[in-house]
Amino acid sequence: MKNRLCHALAINTPIIHCPMHTMTNGKMVAAISEAGGLGILGINSGYNITDVTSGASSTNSEVVGNPNNYSILDTMTERNLMNEQINTTLENTFRSFAVEVASQYDSPEKDPTAKSIVELMRKRRLTIALFEGFGSPLSLAWAKILHENGIKIMQVVSDLAFANTAINHGLDIAIVKELVVANKIQNVYPDTLVVLASGIETSDIQTLIQQVDGIYLNTPFAICNEAIIDDGIKARFLSSHKDDFIKLTLPFGDFLTFKTPYIEQILSRKLSPQELFNQLHQFQGLIDGMIKGNLSYGYCLFDLNSYNINEALSAEEIINTTFHKID
Rank of each mutant, 00 (worst) to 15 (best):
K2H: 06
L5C: 00
L5Y: 00
C6M: 01
A8E: 07
T13V: 15
H21R: 02
G26D: 09
K27F: 10
I32L: 01
A35H: 02
G37F: 01
G39Y: 02
D51V: 05
G55T: 02
A56Y: 04
N60K: 15
S61T: 14
S61W: 03
G65Q: 10
S71W: 07
D74W: 01
N83F: 00
N83V: 00
N83H: 06
E84S: 03
Q85E: 15
T88N: 10
T89S: 13
L90E: 12
F94Y: 06
R95A: 11
S96K: 02
E100H: 03
A102L: 15
E109Q: 13
K110Q: 15
P112Q: 07
S116R: 05
I117P: 08
M121D: 04
T127C: 02
E132T: 13
P137R: 03
L140D: 08
L140I: 09
A141M: 11
W142Q: 09
K144R: 15
L146F: 01
L146E: 05
L146P: 06
L146D: 06
H147F: 02
N149C: 07
I151G: 05
D159H: 06
D159K: 03
N164R: 14
N164S: 12
I167G: 06
I175W: 00
V176N: 03
K177C: 04
E178T: 09
V180F: 13
V180Y: 11
V181P: 05
A182W: 04
A182Q: 03
K184M: 14
I185Y: 05
Y189S: 08
D191N: 14
T192N: 11
T192W: 00
L196S: 05
I200D: 08
E201F: 03
S203K: 12
I205V: 09
V212M: 04
I215G: 00
I215A: 09
L217V: 14
N218C: 08
N218A: 14
T219W: 02
F221Q: 04
I223T: 06
I228C: 10
I228K: 07
F237H: 04
S239Q: 15
K242P: 00
K247I: 14
K247A: 13
K247Q: 13
L248N: 12
L250V: 15
L250F: 13
D254N: 15
D254I: 13
F255W: 14
L256D: 12
K259Y: 06
I263V: 13
Q265C: 09
Q265E: 10
L267T: 09
R269F: 07
L271H: 11
P273K: 15
Q274G: 03
L276D: 12
N278L: 12
Q279Y: 09
L280Q: 10
L280V: 10
F283S: 13
F283H: 14
L286V: 07
L286R: 08
I287C: 07
G293P: 03
Y297A: 03
G298S: 08
N305R: 11
S306D: 09
N310K: 12
N320D: 11
N320M: 11
N320V: 07
T322Y: 05
F323D: 10
F323M: 05
